[in-house]
C-alpha cells in the first residue's frame, strides 16, 4: 500500500508541472503589457516600469518561467497589489470557507443522491423510479447560478427565511451560521446530488442481476439487507470513480455559488481579483485550486483501492483501467 501511494505521488509530479506550465502560458497570453493592464489606464509610466521590474517581466521568457517555478517550489505566491497582502495569506483566509461550502454540498449530495439512486434501482420501472430519474435528469441539466438566484428570490426575498448573501460567523450562533450556509450548499449540491443518483441507479441495476445477489436471497435474508449490504457495497466503486470528477465540478460550481451569495471563498476571490485586474491573484488561486484537485483525486484513488480488495496494488498491470 505504501509503495502504491509513493508511486502515485511520483506520478503526480509531471501533472503538477504541466499545470504550472499551463497557468504560466495563460498569463503570458495577456495581450499587451501585463503591468499596464494591471495598473489601469491612469497609471504613470514610472509605476508601470516599477511593476514590470517587480514582476520580473523584463527578463527573457525562460528566465521568467524558472523564477516562477522557483517561487512556487518555495510556496511563494507573491504579493497582491489590490489587496496589499501576500497572496498566500489571502488563500489561507479564503480556502477554509470554500471547503466548508463544498463539503456541505458533498454531504447533501451523498445523503440524498445515493439513497435516491438505490430506491430507484430497487423499484425499477415504478412511478417512484420514473420520478427520481426525471428529477435527477433535471438536476444534472441545472444552471446552478440560476437556481441560486431563484432560491434567493423565493427563500430570502419573498419568504425571508434565509439571508441572501454572506457567510455567518460562529460568534452569532450556530443557527445563524447554518442559515447562511443552507442556500449556497443546496445550490452547489444540485448537480452532484443528481449525478450520484444517476450513477448509483445504473450501478445498482447492474449489480442486482449478479449471481451473488441470488445467493444472498437464497439465504433467506431480508430484501433490505440484500440491497444495502450485498448490492450497495458492490455498486459503490463507480461512485468513487466519479467522486474525483465531482470534486472538480464542485470547485468550479463554487466560483458561481460564491459569487451569487457573496460567500467569501476562493471563487469570490478569483472573481473579485478579475474585476480588480489583479492577475497575479487570479493566477495563483487558479493554480492552487488545480493543485487541490490533483491531491483530492489521489486521495480518491487510494480510497478506491482500500474499498476494493480485488484490485492489486501494482500500478502497471496490463495498463488498462
Amino acid at each position: 500500500m505504501g509503495k502504491y501511494i509513493f508511486s502515485r505521488l511520483i506520478n503526480m509530479i509531471p501533472t503538477l508541472f504541466v499545470v504550472a506550465i499551463i497557468v504560466f502560458l495563460i498569463t503570458r497570453m495577456i495581450p499587451g503589457d501585463p503591468a499596464s493592464v494591471m495598473l489601469g489606464p491612469q497609471a504613470s509610466r514610472e509605476d508601470v516600469e516599477a511593476l514590470t521590474e517587480a514582476l520580473g517581466l523584463n527578463e527573457p521568457i525562460h528566465i521568467q518561467f524558472l523564477q516562477y517555478i522557483g517561487n512556487l517550489l518555495k510556496g511563494h505566491f507573491g504579493v497582491s497589489l489590490s489587496y496589499n497582502q501576500p497572496i498566500t495569506d489571502l488563500i489561507i483566509n479564503r480556502f477554509p470557507n470554500t471547503v466548508i461550502l463544498a463539503v456541505s454540498a458533498l454531504i447533501i449530495a451523498f445523503m440524498i443522491g445515493v439513497p435516491a439512486g438505490i430506491i430507484s434501482a430497487s423499484k425499477q420501472n415504478s412511478l417512484i423510479d420514473y420520478s427520481i430519474t426525471t428529477i435527477s435528469l433535471i438536476g444534472v441539466s441545472m444552471p446552478i447560478f440560476w437556481l441560486g438566484v431563484m432560491l434567493v428570490l423565493y427563500f430570502s426575498v419573498n419568504l425571508g427565511w434565509f439571508p441572501a448573501t454572506g457567510m455567518g460567523s460562529m460568534a452569532d450562533g450556530f443557527i445563524s451560521y447554518l442559515k447562511h450556509l443552507i442556500l449556497p450548499s443546496i445550490t452547489l449540491a444540485t448537480i452532484p446530488t443528481a449525478t450520484f443518483a444517476r450513477i448509483t441507479r445504473s450501478s445498482m441495476l447492474e449489480v442486482i442481476t449478479q449471481d451473488y445477489i441470488k445467493t444472498a436471497r437464497s439465504k433467506g435474508i431480508s430484501e433490505f439487507i440484500v440491497i444495502f449490504k450485498h448490492a450497495f457495497k458492490n455498486a459503490f466503486n463507480p461512485l468513487l470513480t466519479v467522486l474525483g470528477l465531482q470534486i472538480s465540478s464542485l470547485l468550479g460550481g463554487a466560483v458561481l455559488t460564491e459569487t451569487i451569495f457573496s460567500w467569501p471563498g476562493m471563487g469570490l476571490l478569483i472573481i473579485d481579483a478579475i474585476e480588480k485586474r489583479d492577475f497575479v491573484v487570479v493566477q495563483s488561486t487558479v493554480l492552487f485550486i488545480a493543485l487541490i484537485f490533483v491531491i483530492v483525486n489521489l486521495v480518491v484513488d487510494i480510497l478506491y483501492k482500500v474499498v476494493n480488495p480485488k484490485i492489486s496494488y501494482s500500478t502497471n498491470k496490463g495498463g488498462t483501467k
Partner: peptide, 11 residues
Amino acid sequence: MDGLFAFPFIL
C-alpha cells in the same frame, strides 16, 4: 491533457 483536466471546466 491531464494538466488541463486538473482545472475545473468553468474555471
